[in-house]
Amino acid sequence: MNASETVISVREVSKSFKEVKAVQSVSLDIQRGEYVALLGPNGAGKTTLVEMIEGIQQPDAGTISILGKNWKEHSEELHQNIGLSLQETRFIDKLSVMETMRLFASFYGLDQQRIDAVLELVRLTEKKKAYMVNLSGGQRQRIALGIALLNNPKVLLLDEPTTGLDPNARREIWDILFHLKQKYQTTMILTTHYMEEADYLCDRIVIMDSGQMLGRGTKEELLAQYKSGEVIEFAFSKDIVPTQLSGLGQEIEWEEEYRKGKLVVKDIVTDLPVFLARVEQEGWILSSLECRKMTLDDLFVSMTGRSLSE
């Protein structure tokens, strides 16, 4: 197997809805066995991009090829080799987990053995007789994932597989996906607005906003490429004049309304004492103080002025 075989190739793809340019001239290559996250807030164009790769939407311009095939000529073949989960699919309420799996398995001509194996994989064997309507949010996402995995797909496309789930349920999905990567060398694109998810699961992260790619790489690469440093976040119990903060960091943010600020500094060890000395000198009273490494969210905020979770 060629380790650097390109499985998904997106070339200069654009898509508009009326006035809105949902995706603007995006190109992306994904290698076999690679997990890639599309990270961005709602409305960034992640879903539109993924749905074009899934063949659900047609691009206005540009080309997409998966496993060397395109949707126009090889849709049957691509359907056989792709597994996907859409944002918020609801299945038939009064159908059990097993019956739902059987229905989808029949589309691929799979046998009961495969269904049992997948149910085991997504840890729903015990729930196989439960009606879909009675499943929890995490269980529903897991069966959606299970259906995506039925045909043992070479390419997995997951649109926000963990949105709205509590941390435990999210963790369970991560474990399943992690296991898959190790065992089957599946290629995956996942959209998310959780940076931890992108960071934990994926080899590469693509940051999207307003239909464009703002950056790509591993978390470390992204942070190193665009910004270095560490963060001091603080809040005061009284108003201050923000100009008094000048000279303390490479980047200074001050939110008047919440009396909250953020400094991006080179090194906390040397810069924190300077900050604290200024606090003492001005007689400010700190109501909170937090020091941490730069995150993707910080990066995103500095790129767009908005947070990922917005």
């Binding site: 038939i92 989808f104 589309f107």
Partner: peptide
């Protein structure tokens, strides 16, 4: 109902 649940689009994303 199946269309509004997005179940139709999920189903046609298989070889159904």
């Amino acid at each position: 109902d199946k269309r509004s649940k997005k179940l139709l689009r999920r189903m046609v994303a298989t070889p159904m």
